[in-house]
Design a protein around this nucleic acid. Structure first.
Lengths: 204, 204, 204, 204
DNA sequence: AATGAATGAGCATTCATTCAT
DNA sequence: TATGAATGAATGCTCATTCAT
């Protein structure tokens, strides 16, 4: 119990501190202080500072993946699945602002390990989207000329950019449901007004 | 001339070094070496390390903004404008991989100054998109229920995520034109197959 | 019995670890691991790390002293006594390479306690030599102009330097008996060739 | 001039600090303080702490070697050469007590680099002795059954042990000239009283 | 303006020692 | 007695910044 306790406490503290200061500016003693643990204790559970960051991903992003996956698996309609992904991704990050900040910041560090790690672990999450898109195409719901590999990134990138906005501006101008719906709509239906004569005329 | 020369040389060197190592891991002496300048000389042109980073944005992103703006202003059709934005954004970052890496990495640093700066400077670039969207809506080309503030982020985020892919995987699976077109298409038309009976049936 | 057992086990382990890594580089946990004992247990038997080192000397060097003394006491001829000392010193250290390394390394630490300790304990061993020399002088076997205090150090130093050689070069170029005899001979007879006309001529 | 100055100052300071505290207990900041230099400055001249120690050997022992060699080369009689070696070795270490302490202490560290270094550099010094012995043997001055490799160690070890005594007991009981002569005599003539009937009788 | 040697604050990590169990 | 998790003081080294030249 104790071991799990300390490990967890340190992870939680690291999430907070990394979010607040960023990986490079965070000091081990900051994490230790927040975790109410001695500096040296951290090294009983982690090999080094970077190892803490990787563990944060393992644990916290793993948790994110599981929650989103679980919800999506209950659904059969690919359109709904994407809507749920958008809504859940945004709301979970909203609830866990620290994690959102870490994903924003640290996932982009130009670090070999992060790069490799990201390929391995984080892509599992984003690949949920491309699986859904392929299902939609198989059901003749989605256009076949859309490449799932590009579309998944477009969808995830759109959501990610919104998350970034929230980090920059703590008081969001848009609520989660609306944002998730707008992005899903843009993605699913596009922004062209098909009922409009002008659009047709201009061959948009 | 010489002063301008040095300032420019240092900026160029900083772009390379920041891109290769990231801001925190980059050393002033690295930049000085690449710029073929003494360490101390850098402090004749910049206040501190972070000031170099801000200047990189000022100069290099300013250049990016100008190039994209110029092309878009020649166009009147909002649909084409977005296509051009996508194509140009991706191809310019492709040509200037170092800048692309810096945007990816450093723009997400959880740093007060960067945050403030980003609001001020970088948003000017992204706002090109929302202006275009508003133009499209005014022309009855784009649906009025799309919020330009969300849509601009969705569009930029989609492009940005593709740029990120290229940084992580130097050998891209997708070419620029195709990627730009796919993203524009998704954004403009959505991914639902409107001609399909299934899509209609499932009220997707 | 058990307590003695543990104490002994720790000492034995410490000899190995100190020999392998040196006092400063040896970790308490290394010793604990080799002794198959918990780290904390060591502190039930020793006050601190340095105390272990002193105990190693007490026990292991004490053992060395006893063995050499015992053999020498059986002998009456001072010349033979020195030969035996040389042979036994070298062969015992050869058998116990770890102890040899510790004597080499740790006995020279510039540490007040070691210094004091050395005077107290180790000199008892070296004094065997001066006692023998005085016996030889009393029996008119050895020259009276030789100062026992210097001679004992010369003899011990010579042996010690050979031991050092073995530690540095695990595969010795010289065997023990030969080495012991050579050193005894040099010490007892010198290296000048008294039968040679040249030596006489040069008043060497 | 400045560079040489600082390098020299740091070496000198390191000799003092290493002598006083020993390598492991010496702190870089101690050396910096004694050298009247900032901590970081040390790293402009040395790669790391151990590199300082090696440099101390290079410079200071190199100096010792040169001085002893120079004197010996003026001499042709191998007996005198050994006497001079003994006298000079002891008196130079006497003058430079810090260096003497470092040789005593650090030369015996069980450290791979030191071991290798010692073979390379320090043996050059000790080999002076074996060269002299071979010369003596070639001139029929010294007995041919003495192995120079063992004899050199015996001679050096004897001197070294005396140096050690001085380090342990700052107030020496024996003066340098007397000590050097005694060791040379023991080495050259042995301690057996050849004029004595007893010695002959006991086949010593 | 330009240099680059010098500075010294700052921090990750180690490990002897303690103490609750 | 015995354990080993927890502690936290201690330190080698880095590197942004300064400043005498």
């Amino acid at each position: 119990m104790k071991t799990i306790d300390k490990h967890e406490k340190i992870i939680k503290a690291a999430v907070k501190v990394f979010a607040k200061k960023g990986f490079f500016s965070a000091r081990i003693s900051d994490i230790a202080k927040v975790a109410k643990v001695a500096d040296g204790t951290i090294y009983l559970y982690f090999n080094n500072k970077f190892d803490i960051l990787l563990s944060v991903f393992d644990i916290e992003i793993g948790r994110l993946i599981n929650q989103v996956k679980e919800l999506i698996e209950k659904e059969t309609n690919p359109c709904r699945m994407l809507e749920i992904f958008a809504l859940k991704h945004l709301s979970l990050l909203k609830e866990n602002r620290s994690l959102a900040e870490i994903i924003q910041m640290e996932l982009r560090q130009n670090n070999k390990l992060i790069k490799e790690y990201r390929v391995t672990k984080f892509s599992e999450y984003v690949d949920i989207i491309s699986h859904v898109i392929r299902q939609g195409q198989a059901l003749n719901l989605f256009r076949k000329d859309i490449q799932p590999g590009i579309a998944k990134r477009a969808f995830f990138g759109a959501l990610d950019e919104m998350a970034r906005l929230w980090i920059l501006a703590p008081k969001p101008a848009y609520n989660i449901e609306e944002t998730a719906m707008q992005i899903s709509k843009i993605f699913l239906c596009g922004i062209i007004d098909k009922g409009s004569a002008q659009a047709d005329e201009k061959r948009c």
